[in-house]
């Protein structure tokens, strides 16, 4: 199974939760949205997207529902659960703590 090598471990969950917090989406749209919002920098390999979404679903953080798309095709739409919102908040704080710490390290001025 391919893992997104350029994503820090664990951040894929955070990104997926955040994207789904805005809108219930099917997996394909999640990938598109992620690419679009991140300015093409973050590209989740489609191969790792589905297992990640299914894991979130089994963890109770997202829930899935079969709905019809605008084009009239049945698709599995994922949306956030209350547990997912809590997880998103937690993961966001973790990420901010971590990235803040890294930022402080790399901004040290050489003397």
């Amino acid at each position: 199974m391919s893992k997104p090598a350029d994503l820090v471990q664990g951040t894929l969950d955070l990104l997926l939760l955040k994207i789904l917090a805005l809108d219930p989406l099917h997996a394909w749209a999640v990938a598109q949205r992620l690419k679009q919002v991140s300015g093409d920098i973050l590209q989740v390999s489609d191969g790792s997207l589905y297992p990640a979404l299914h894991k979130l679903e089994q963890s109770g953080w997202v829930t899935a529902e079969w709905k019809t798309t605008e084009a009239g095709r049945r698709a599995k739409f994922y949306s956030l659960t209350p547990h997912g919102r809590e997880a998103l908040e937690r993961e966001t704080q973790n990420w901010q703590r971590l990235s803040g710490a890294i930022a402080r390290v790399i901004e040290i001025q050489e003397v």
Binding site: M1, S2, G47, Y50, P51, A52, H54, K55, Q58
Partner: peptide
């Protein structure tokens, strides 16, 4: 190809079910 092959993809999703 983007799914790394259907069977492997399914297997990975089954693993995710726990």
């Amino acid at each position: 190809r983007a799914l790394d092959g259907m069977d492997r993809q399914k297997e990975a999703c089954r693993d995710a079910r726990g």
